[in-house]
């Protein structure tokens, strides 16, 4: 390193210092600690006891824990519903909101709004909408001659949560909309002159240009859907009969209800590995379908 390089290095480090410290204390160390705890018997007890190394025992015990499999299955079921639904609905909405018609500013604002409001408030109002007896949704179903649905019952709760998540896709819609502005006009024009219909233009021009945005939303969607906790925590408390008991819920309960920090850390690590693996698969597959223009 030359004198100047060294000087710049120290200058750079000085500016980065807050983040470097924060990263170490609030991200890197917690992740390492979490890994260590996951191999320990560690309970928050009074008087305090240090974590006791027990090797793979937590993981072994997890394999025989029916709640582990139940919560994992529930989470996968939810992701399999909410992720594709959210991706399709937000893309469809973005295409509609991109049409050159009057009043789009109002439509866009309305569709964006639900994504802003606190989870606690949306959970509250949807509980009320989903109420079996007095809820608005069952009333509307009755209007069109359908029988009432137990929206938050054992069968219905999971699709109901996915439906709610579709209500909150506003910021994904905005990201798609911004992406749509970057699709070159000349290409769309050329395609039209060549006789391509609206559908053809969508699939052959617009969507290929949008693939980097679709990819971004896919990755964020995987991570978001896997870490869902607030809404079911408030609305269903994991029930009925553990039907909405998510992986994160299992983690939370073990940690803060039963104070089994070691066991909870093992759960957190499995979540991290699954999320990373899925993100990895997404990145790997990106080579085949994402076009960077």
């Amino acid at each position: 390193m030359t004198q100047e390089e060294r000087q710049n290095f120290f200058k750079g480090m000085a500016f980065l210092a807050p983040w470097l410290f924060g990263f170490a204390v609030f991200t890197a160390i917690p992740i390492c600690l979490s890994c260590y705890y996951s191999f320990c018997d560690f309970s928050l007890t009074v008087p305090r006891r240090a974590p006791l190394w027990i090797g793979m025992d937590n993981y072994r015990q997890l394999m025989h824990d029916s709640l582990f499999w139940k919560s994992l299955g529930n989470t996968v079921y939810y992701v399999a519903m909410a992720l594709p639904a959210g991706m399709l609905v937000s893309l469809g909405l973005a295409l509609l909101l991109n049409a050159k018609i009057r009043g789009q500013a109002i439509y866009r604002a309305i569709i964006f709004l639900p994504s802003l409001i606190p989870a606690i408030a949306s959970a509250m109002v949807w509980m009320w909408m989903y109420n079996t007896q007095y809820g608005l949704l069952n009333y509307l179903l009755g209007k069109v001659g359908l029988p009432p649905v137990a929206w938050l019952g054992e069968k219905g709760a999971m699709p109901s949560l996915a439906l709610m998540s579709v209500w909150g896709v506003g910021n994904t819609v905005i990201i798609y909309l911004a992406g749509l502005q970057d699709v070159p006009r000349e290409l769309l024009e050329a395609a039209e002159i060549d006789g391509a219909g609206a559908m053809r233009r969508l699939f052959s021009v617009t969507l290929p240009f949008l693939t980097p945005v679709i990819f971004f939303n896919l990755v964020m969607g995987i991570i978001g859907a896997f870490s869902i906790l607030t809404v079911p925590y408030i609305m269903t408390q994991g029930g009925p009969n553990n039907a909405t008991y998510f992986f994160t819920f299992f983690n939370y309960d073990e940690a803060f209800k039963f104070l089994h920090m070691g066991y909870a850390s093992a759960i957190a690590w499995i979540q991290l590995v699954i999320t990373l693996a899925l993100t990895g698969i997404a990145f790997w597959s990106a080579k085949k379908w994402v076009h960077y223009g």
Partner: peptide, 29 residues
């Protein structure tokens, strides 16, 4: 400065760590 690109990449990657994963160790910290 040297290492800026790598540090920036690490920083972006931290956006993807979900809170439930770090909540237990953060609590003990």
């Amino acid at each position: 400065f040297r290492g800026r690109g790598i540090l920036f990449g690490i920083m972006l990657a931290t956006i993807m760590i979900p809170f439930p994963v770090t909540m237990v160790p953060l609590f003990t910290i």
